[in-house]
Design a protein around this nucleic acid. Structure first.
Lengths: 191, 191
DNA sequence: TTTTAGAGTTGAACTTGTTCAACTTTTTTT
DNA sequence: AAAAAAAGTTGAACAAGTTCAACTCTAAAA
């Protein structure tokens, strides 16, 4: 069942034969993470790429001033990793925390390389996934520049209604780039 | 010489044989663009991926309120495209404008596909380029959330001193996500 | 079940950034 | 070289978002 979700996700990016899907999935191992546990800690090296099967995660980084910046949340059917750290095996600038008991499928670096070598279409598959990711990062930047905090909040809960329900307002504020006190004030004026 | 720059850029992402570099470059065609001309107009379909050999471009989008959001500037040695429009052949949300007389190397969609098919390592090459792009978009988002406008401005001119010189303050303000009047006030207090 | 820690709310004072309008300076066009 | 069009500056009034502190309301731990 978890592998079924992965296959569906992969197939949504690039049409693959069931044999290819089978082979790709076989490289992933399942892992369960309890609420509040970390899948990755800032400063350590990211050894996996992960796909969320169940639960919810928060990907964030803490800067020198102690500010907690949430890059994104990842619930079921989302991918999860510190690309930079995984790619270059450098200390991660990001942390990944489970917000509830969760389940992920992980692929390690060597395994991914081996998979890419033996099945070249995987390279293309990830290329497409990364392309889509860039588009959404660009759009988020534009929204951050052109919308007010309130508009960004309304966009967020409308676009990710399921994820919003799992989050505290503090977490949402961290994602929007505002203080949680201000989010509280925003919500008062809502509708 | 322009192709030399392209080869060097490609090789910086992934080690390639000179034969591979030769083949890849051969798919690109050179194009000159005069200052103020557009390489891509919002609403039209992006038919190329471009590499800047000379000059400088601004990649931006105008939202419904008429706000001009600059996504990035691309000078010599930068890549240039609307990924979403190029990938899906949908109307572009972005415009690309030459800020000075410029020269680019372009590869069309079909050509790129053909190239990828005949030389699979190209898929990997672009995958790596896209990965790097994601990392820099993520970092920019974090900076936008954790730095003040002044800090972002100082970071920008320090990180891209060459590009900054080519830009007006209005253009820089558009990139930083602030009004140009405010940038003017920031600069007064600078040092 | 009680305690405790964390999440959410509110107000007042404050800082950052915007708006608009008038003006000066620089660049481009004729 | 003059005229026109942009780019940059400044000030005053304003709006958006922050800070801090006090408080209330959960939710989780003991």
């Amino acid at each position: 069942m978890p592998y079924q979700l992965l296959k569906k996700n992969l197939n949504g990016n690039l049409n693959l034969s069931s044999k290819e899907l089978e082979k790709i999935s076989s490289y992933f191992t399942s892992k369960e993470i309890k609420k509040k546990e970390f899948l990755l800690t800032q400063g350590s090296i990211c050894k996996f790429e992960g796909f969320v099967v169940q639960g919810c995660f928060r990907v964030f980084s803490i800067d020198k001033n102690g500010n907690d910046n949430t890059l994104y949340f990842a619930a079921k059917d989302w991918w999860l990793m510190d690309i930079d750290s995984f790619m270059n095996q450098t200390p991660s600038e990001l942390s990944i925390e489970a917000l509830e008991d969760s389940k992920v499928l992980l692929i390690g670096r060597e395994d991914k390389q081996e998979l890419c070598n033996s099945l070249p279409i995987v390279e293309k598959l990830f290329k497409i996934m990364f392309q889509k990711a860039i588009v959404s990062w660009q759009r988020r930047l534009i929204r951050n520049h052109s919308l007010t905090a309130k508009e960004r909040y309304l966009y967020f809960i409308k676009t990710y209604p399921d994820i919003s329900l799992k989050l505290t307002d503090k977490q949402i504020a961290g994602y929007l780039g505002i203080r949680h006190e201000f989010l509280s004030k925003i919500k008062k004026t809502e509708k």
